[in-house]
Design a protein around this nucleic acid. Structure first.
Length: 488
RNA sequence: GGCGCUAUCGUCUAACGGUUAGGACGGAGCCCUCUCAAGGCUCAAAUACGGGUUCGAUUCCCGUUAGCGCUACCA
C-alpha cells in the first residue's frame, strides 16, 4: 500500500509583507514537497477583513518568487481544488459550519461583546482562566430559532467535550496531549459570516488533500481544536509538524522594532536570495554534517523533517552577512558582471560606460573584498572616477615633503612603459625606488593615495594596470598639485 | 494565572548511553603582505540546576528554574 502523494501548503495572511519566519515556513514546506515529489500549495488566508492590506497578495507572491520558491497550486494556478483564496470560499465554510451545527458539534452563540467582556473581567477577578461560559450552549432549539428569526447577530462555536484528553502526534515534537477542559469553545464563524482560521484551515486542508501540515509552533496550542474538527467531520488527520520559532536577539518571538523582519528589507539591502534562503534553512535544520553552504538544489536533496530541531533560533544577522559573502564569492565573474552593470546603472556613474573587459578586471580584483554589490561602486569608486578627495588620515601618514618629488620621478618612469601590465608597473616602481634610495613601500603608499584616495584595496600594481598608464599618470599629477606636504 | 513547548560555547548547531563534548559565525592571536580584504594556523568559549535509572549520562525519567508560545468574532 503506497501512501498518497505528499501535498503541503504555505498559508499566509495578506497583512503586509513576507516575514522571514514566514519565508522559513514556506521554504521548509517547499523543500519537503520537492524532496518527496509532492505538491506545494500557496493558500491565502484572508478571513480577517480588518487586517487585510491592499497589494499584500501580489507582494507575497513576488517575494516568494524572488526567493526561488514557486508554488504548484495557488492563486492563478488551479490544481482542481481551488479557489485558493479563503475569501472566495465562504460558501464552502458556511456549508460545513451548518453540518457541524446539524450534528450538534457546534452551537450558535448570541452573546454580545459587552457580555463577553464582562464575563472575562469577572473571570480575571476570580483568577479563573478566560473561557467562554457556554451560556448559549444551553439555549433550547426553539430559543435558537427565535433568535435567528429575529436577526440577532450570532457566531457559531465549537462544542468542546468535557473531561476528554486530546492526543496527537507531531513529527517534530512527538506525542502531545491536552485536556479538553483547557480548550475554549472556539468561534468558528464570526458574526460577519467569515470563518475563523480554525474552521477555514481544517476545511481547506481536507478539501485540498493536504497530507502534511508544516507550520510555526505558535499553532501547537490550537491544534487540539483542529483535531476535534477533523473528528467531528469524520476526516482523516494530516501529519503535523510544528516548527520552532524564529527569535529576536532577546529570545522573544521575532518581531519588528528589533531589526528587520520583512524579506524585502533584506532584498533591498542587497542580500542575495541564495544567502537568505541558505540562512533561514539552517535556522532549525541541519544536514547532520558540517556543511553550511547550500544552494536550493542541495537543500532539496538533503532536507528532511526528521532533522528539524525543537528549540527556537535567534535570527543572527552577522552570520547572514558571512553567508552572503560566501554566496557572492561563489558566483562566476560573468554573473557578477551582469550584477555590476545593474549596480552601475543606479550609481552616480550611470552616465559613463565601461567596456566589459574593464569591469571584469575590476571584478577580479574586488570580489574578495566586497560584501554586497554596492561595495564595488562604493569601495571601488576610484575605478569609475578619479578621487575627488583624499583620505585625511592617509595623507597625514603617507604624503610627506618628499612625496611630490618621488611621484614626479615615478611618473617619468611610468611614462616609459610600453606594456603597462602589473609586472611592468612593479618593476618600474622598483627602479624608481632604487634610484631615489627609498623603500618600495614609500612609493607604493604614495601612489595608492594618489590614484585611489583611500588606504585599502587590491594590490597596487593591479589597480594601476586596470586604470592604465595615462589615467595613472593623470591622477598622480593631480595629486601632486592638490596635496600639500605634511610633516611627519 | 492556566495550558503547552523548549533548554549544549555569546549565536547557529553536532552527539541518536561510552568522544580530550565536534563544526560554523563572532572574538583574540599568529602567518601571509604595499594597504584592505580573502585565506591558513592557534586560542578562549557550553551540556541551566537538583534528584533518580544505569557499570556509565549532554543523551532516558522526575522535579525545579528560566525562556518562549497559546489563552480573541487575529492569524
Amino acid at each position: 500500500m503506497s501512501s498518497p502523494a505528499v501535498r503541503v501548503r504555505f498559508a499566509p495572511s495578506p497583512t503586509g509583507f513576507l516575514h522571514v519566519g514566514g519565508l522559513r515556513t514556506a521554504l521548509y514546506n517547499y523543500l519537503f514537497a520537492r524532496r518527496t515529489n509532492g505538491v506545494f500549495i500557496l493558500r491565502i488566508e484572508d478571513t480577517d477583513r480588518a487586517r487585510y492590506v491592499e497589494g499584500a497578495v501580489e507582494n507575497l507572491v513576488s517575494t516568494l518568487r524572488w526567493a526561488g520558491i514557486d508554488f504548484d497550486e495557488g492563486p492563478g494556478k488551479d490544481g482542481g481544488v481551488g479557489p485558493y483564496v479563503q475569501s472566495e470560499r465562504l460558501e464552502i465554510y458556511r456549508k460545513h459550519a451548518e453540518s457541524l451545527f446539524a450534528s450538534g458539534n457546534a452551537y450558535y452563540c448570541f452573546c454580545t461583546s459587552v457580555r463577553l467582556e464582562e464575563m472575562r473581567k469577572q473571570q480575571d477577578a476570580l483568577r479563573l482562566p478566560p473561557k467562554y461560559d457556554r451560556h448559549c450552549a444551553k439555549l433550547t432549539p426553539d430559543e435558537v430559532s427565535a433568535l435567528i428569526a429575529a436577526g440577532t447577530p450570532r457566531v457559531l462555536r465549537l462544542r468542546v467535550p468535557v473531561g476528554a484528553t486530546i492526543r496527537f502526534h507531531d513529527v517534530i515534537r512527538d506525542d502531545v496531549e491536552f485536556s479538553s477542559d483547557a480548550i475554549d469553545d472556539q468561534v468558528l464563524i464570526k458574526s460577519d459570516g467569515y470563518p475563523t482560521y480554525h474552521l477555514a484551515n481544517v476545511v481547506d486542508d481536507h478539501l485540498m488533500k493536504v497530507t502534511h501540515v508544516i507550520r510555526g509552533e505558535e499553532w501547537l496550542s490550537s491544534t487540539p481544536k483542529h483535531i476535534l474538527l477533523y473528528g467531528y467531520f469524520g476526516w482523516e488527520k494530516p501529519v503535523f509538524a510544528h516548527l520552532p520559532l524564529l527569535l529576536n536577539p532577546d529570545r522573544s518571538k521575532l518581531s519588528k522594532r528589533q531589526g528587520d523582519v520583512a524579506v524585502e528589507e533584506y532584498r533591498a539591502k542587497q542580500y542575495l536570495r541564495e544567502a537568505l534562503v541558505n540562512f533561514v534553512a539552517l535556522l532549525g535544520w541541519n544536514p547532520g554534517d558540517d556543511r553550511e553552504i547550500f544552494q536550493m538544489e542541495e537543500l532539496i536533496k538533503e532536507f528532511s523533517l526528521e532533522r528539524v530541531g525543537k528549540s527556537g533560533a535567534i535570527f543572527n544577522q552577522t552570520k547572514l552577512g558571512w553567508l552572503n559573502e560566501q554566496h557572492l564569492r561563489s558566483k562566476s565573474d560573468r554573473e557578477l558582471l551582469g550584477m555590476l552593470q545593474c549596480e552601475l546603472a543606479g550609481s552616480p556613474f550611470k552616465e559613463k560606460t565601461f567596456p566589459d573587459a574593464y569591469l571584469l578586471s575590476v571584478i577580479t580584483v574586488m570580489r574578495e573584498r566586497v560584501s554586497f554589490m554596492r561595495d564595488f561602486v562604493e569601495k571601488g569608486a576610484y575605478f569609475f572616477e578619479a578621487p575627488a578627495s583624499y583620505e585625511e588620515e592617509m595623507v597625514r601618514k603617507r604624503w610627506t615633503s618628499e612625496s611630490a618629488g618621488q611621484m614626479e620621478h615615478l611618473v617619468r618612469e611610468f611614462s616609459l612603459l610600453t606594456v603597462p601590465g602589473p609586472a611592468e608597473f612593479e618593476s618600474a616602481l622598483h627602479r624608481s625606488a632604487q634610484s631615489l634610495g627609498v623603500g618600495n613601500g614609500v612609493l607604493i603608499h604614495g601612489v595608492r593615495l594618489a590614484v585611489s584616495g583611500v588606504s585599502g584595496g587590491p594590490g597596487i600594481y593591479e589597480i594601476l594596470a586596470i586604470l592604465g598608464k595615462d589615467e595613472t599618470i593623470t591622477r598622480i599629477r593631480a595629486a601632486i598639485s592638490r596635496l600639500a606636504p605634511t610633516a611627519r
